[in-house]
Amino acid sequence: MLECRELTFRYPNGVSALNGVDFAVQPGESVAVVGQNGSGKTTLIKHFNGLLSPTSGVVLVKGRPIAGAEPADLATTVGLVFQNPADQIFQSKVEDEVAFGASRLGLTREEVDERVSQALAETGLSSVSASHPYDLTLSERKLLCFASVLAMKPEVIVLDEPTTAQDSLGVRQLVRIIGKLIGEGRTVIAVTHDMEFVAEVFARTVVMREGRIVLDGPTSSVFQQRDVLETAYVKPPSMGRLSQRLRLAETVLTVDGLVAWVVGQVGHRLGRAPS
């Protein structure tokens, strides 16, 4: 679906942000990209929809180099939700903002309206559809950016720090929306610092350090690599740290997982104990 080969990127001021990244995402995968501030995460995902062009290396979308792709084709393939809503919002009404991208895809008016109301419903913004985006709270504005991308129905959705500025209810809502997208077979990639969110949602995790990928694999295996994680300044989620403290053979990442493990241990002991 998406692939980078030997991707490097240097900003005009000479700062080298990506130093040879090889990365491929298959359709239907859910991938978290984690790492310290400045490790290259955002620079990497800005290559996925052509916002940045590589200094060297190639980016392929559905097997074709992104360099020659039409922006309109790309827009229905890869949708990027920015970290800061101010970078994305420019209409004066919530529903117009959501309709903006979708109405440029050659759909009928009815189809656009349908998509807009669906995207607003999914993000819980239906009741503020007539508001001015700047009358919304920051967490609502972030969901609005998400809704605008959902209305385009891209095959790949890329989110930059979706959980910042969200309270626990906002995070739950994101978990629900993204879980649904993954369930529908959509490809979702998110850059995030929120390891609890990673543990709950993403099957695969990529760890970046100094413009390189240092770990890439199933989320539970990645959080097992404590030495590498430390060099990348990444910390496992709370249940991961607890299972490491308890020296579990596998790193368990969620409360559900840890409850199941304790229940298993207790059952095992009961079975073993003389009656």
């Binding site: 626990s168 209810l169 609890e196 709370s238 249940m239 409360v255 304790v262 229940v263 207790v266």
Partner: peptide, 20 residues
Amino acid sequence: FDVQPPRYTTLGQRLADRGL
């Protein structure tokens, strides 16, 4: 009040709910 307790607390509560 839509505040999540620490996950460690949730774990303790869940284990208590299971009678453990």
